[in-house]
Design a protein around this nucleic acid. Structure first.
Lengths: 203, 203
DNA sequence: CATAAATTTGACCATTCGGTTAAACTCAAT
DNA sequence: ATTGAGTTTAACCGAATGGTCAAATTTATG
């Protein structure tokens, strides 16, 4: 039945997502995924022939989910300053709901760059900062932004939102000594990071 | 022979370091480590009883190497601004020589927080930002630094230096589209990040 | 209802992997 | 030269793991 098939395939996919995010490709076990999905292990191989197939399906979907959060932001009709605020608010919110995603993607890329490069070849990164220079050429005079330092600025923005989630484990250890609550810290970060960047790039 | 013993143990340790950094705990194979060290697999278990023992030895040493880079910087007799510049120069230089370290540590913490928390319990993070507030109390009037936003500022500084190495794989994909060279980008980052932070926190 | 197609399962297989063991080798001290 | 402790090796073991298969079950179709 197609209704049931969708359900089973989805159950598998969701279980695999959780397990892969938590354990990574090499740490994940097919049996663990099967258990979590509440099905037989052989059924995994019926829907996704191999562990690699399953992994690629999961990774591709998650990567698209992650990186697609960048593009629309840079197409909206907002001033540069508004866009920066909008980005941090939206992107950090997204990660609050998917806290393991950054670490997962970073981890898998580090373990197998060539393979992941292929999986990511569909995603178009080219628009990313060309839009900045083009759509905001007329307001760049207010900011210390040039084609030269744009890579630095863009990666800085990414750092500020992504790093706290990727390195959450370490931050929580350090925070523990000072009674800082991670969730509160993240909530604050939406505005702090935006203010910080805007202050830094404004002439 | 004690001379030879040191040599063998070191050969194993170095091989294990490389393999663990590249593959992670779950991805690393004892056979791979043995091969790389040019010895028999049983010899691994003679020097380090189990994979876990070997891993903990390697991880602890690398973690200390990494985090010890933070402390001395905050004890030197420099102005706050000089310290920030000093930090980015030194810390990024360190990572240029150990580019896989950040990703490795982040990855292992994400996969097993409790265990790593124990391994890191020797390291003292407490001095980290208390020194800032104490040693520089008299010059804080120049900056937008309070006890409240110190966590944000400290993690921001860490983000800016660590993230490019942790997420190197992704950055290189994006950079590829714009002809940006990663090594050049890193070299620039030492001063860019310092300027960026100082600009952002100066009243 | 009968039949074929799709789905699900339990049992099983081959390989890989971490770890063990007993024997062999090295070498310094007697 | 012999001994004995430390070092190294080849061969082996049991468990875990990814994957397969044929049989059983469910579902769609005439």
């Amino acid at each position: 039945m197609s209704e049931n098939e969708k359900l089973t395939e989805e159950k598998i996919f969701e279980a695999a997502t959780v397990v892969f995010e938590e354990e990574g490709l090499s740490g994940a076990r097919m049996q663990t995924i099967a258990d979590r999905a509440g099905i037989n292990k052989a059924l995994l191989h019926y829907y996704f022939r191999t562990k690699d197939h399953l992994f690629e399906a999961v990774f591709t979907k998650l990567a698209k989910k992650m990186f697609s959060k960048f593009n629309p932001i840079f197409e909206k009709e907002l001033s540069l300053e508004e866009k920066i605020r909008f980005f941090f608010r939206e992107h950090i919110s997204f990660m609050q709901h998917n806290p393991k995603l950054p670490g997962f993607i970073i981890n898998e890329i580090n373990h197998n760059p060539q393979r992941i490069k292929k999986l990511l070849s569909n995603i178009d990164f080219k628009k990313l900062w060309s839009t900045i220079l083009e759509h905001h050429a007329h307001e760049l005079y207010k900011y210390n932004i040039t084609e030269e330092n744009l890579p630095q600025i863009m990666t800085t923005i990414a750092s500020l939102s992504v790093f706290p989630f990727a390195a959450r484990g370490i931050l929580e250890i350090v925070f523990n000594n000072y009674g800082v609550n991670f969730d509160k810290y993240i909530e604050d970060r939406k505005t702090f990071a935006a203010d910080f960047v805007i202050k830094a790039i404004t002439k």
